[in-house]
């Protein structure tokens, strides 16, 4: 087991190195650099000397190799380079935003899991009944509603009917002010969890349906076990592997992929950070955020694989 984990961690490191090379090549390949974007269409009103001095101010004249080397060194120094725009270390920028993204992703995943699995199981048990029908309509609707639209509707609904808007501006720290944090995050988390719950409901329904027809369920029932034990211990535990796969993929995606909800609710996660960094060609910041997102993808995958073994003892790690 521990050998397996170590091997996986080494693989993750390799993946990060690969991603770091690709992303730094890609950012170099982006048309227009930081100074071009900063000056926009006005740049031809500046003299060559003026533009050159701006370029050298931001170290934009170095070769790819030099920039990459400097970036890697800065990673080991813990700064991951400096944002061109704010001049602050990239690691600081990311650490400031990461809690927001993690809270959104984790919150949406937990609520999505609870609601999605519950509905999926109900829907499978009462297959073709009225509740199955209603739940499946929810699933389809939840998947089809664009989150930004739902988010806007929620904000406007709150404003119109309750004359209240969630706190905006700086993200409220969950430890310092749990109630304020709750007010700020509950609605974006709920909006995100709708699509999550809908997707998870569909997969738990089909997984449960499959398991319910298997021989060991019939055996369990004929042994005289109560329906509750059959459903939870025998069915759900076995049906959980595809559910977990989907939930972990979705969660990993949400860490960097909540831009739209961040913008509607004015929360600054790493999604908006990345979008703005790409738009302004803030190279070190783009690279840093992509690397962090890659890390979380790999990390969540690893954790998921480990949970598989716990759920299904037949899965072995060698």
């Amino acid at each position: 087991m521990s050998a397996y984990i170590i091997r996986r961690i080494i693989l993750i490191l390799f993946a990060l190195v690969g991603v770091s090379i690709i992303i730094s090549l890609l950012t170099m390949a982006l048309p227009a650099d930081y100074v071009d974007i900063m000056l926009g269409t006005e740049q031809r009103t500046l003299t060559e000397t003026q533009i050159q001095s701006l370029r050298s101010l931001y170290d934009l004249d170095d070769s790819w190799f030099e920039r990459y080397r400097r970036w890697i060194v800065s990673i080991f120094q813990g700064t991951m380079g400096h944002s061109l725009r704010t001049g602050r270390p990239v690691s600081t920028e990311i650490l400031m935003r990461l809690p927001v993204s993690l809270e959104l992703a984790l919150g949406a995943t937990i609520i999505g899991l609870v609601i999605g699995v519950l509905l999926g199981v109900l829907s499978a048990i009462y297959r073709e009944g009225l509740s199955d029908f209603v739940i499946r309509i929810f699933g389809l609707t939840g998947l089809s509603i664009p989150p930004f639209w739902l988010g806007l509707m929620v904000i406007l609904g709150l404003a119109l009917f309750f004359n209240w808007t969630p706190p905006r501006g700086r993200a409220i720290n969950i430890l310092a002010d749990p109630i304020g944090n709750f007010k700020q995050f509950i609605f974006p988390v709920l909006v995100l969890s709708v699509a999550m719950a809908a997707a998870l409901m569909r997969i738990s329904r089909s997984a449960m349906l499959e398991v319910l027809q298997s021989d060991y369920v019939r055996t369990a029932r004929s042994k005289g076990l109560t329906e509750r034990v059959v459903l939870i211990k025998h069915c759900l535990k076995n049906a959980f592997i595809p559910i977990l796969t989907l939930a972990s993929m979705q969660m990993a995606y949400l860490i960097g992929g909540t831009v739209v909800i961040e913008s509607v609710f004015s929360l600054n996660g790493i999604g908006i950070l990345l979008l703005n960094a790409v738009n302004t060609r803030d190279y070190a910041l783009v690279q840093g955020v992509v690397l962090v997102i890659t890390f979380f993808f790999a990390f969540i995958n690893l954790i998921t694989d480990l949970i598989y073994g716990f759920l299904d003892p037949r899965i072995r790690y060698e």
């Binding site: 930004f148 904000i155 406007l156 709150l158 404003a159 004359n163 209240w164 808007t165 905006r168 908006i272």
Partner: peptide, 12 residues
């Protein structure tokens, strides 16, 4: 970043 969200804030 979302202008309609600003409108909601003005309203409340």
């Amino acid at each position: 970043p979302e202008e309609f969200s600003i409108v909601a804030g003005l309203r409340t």
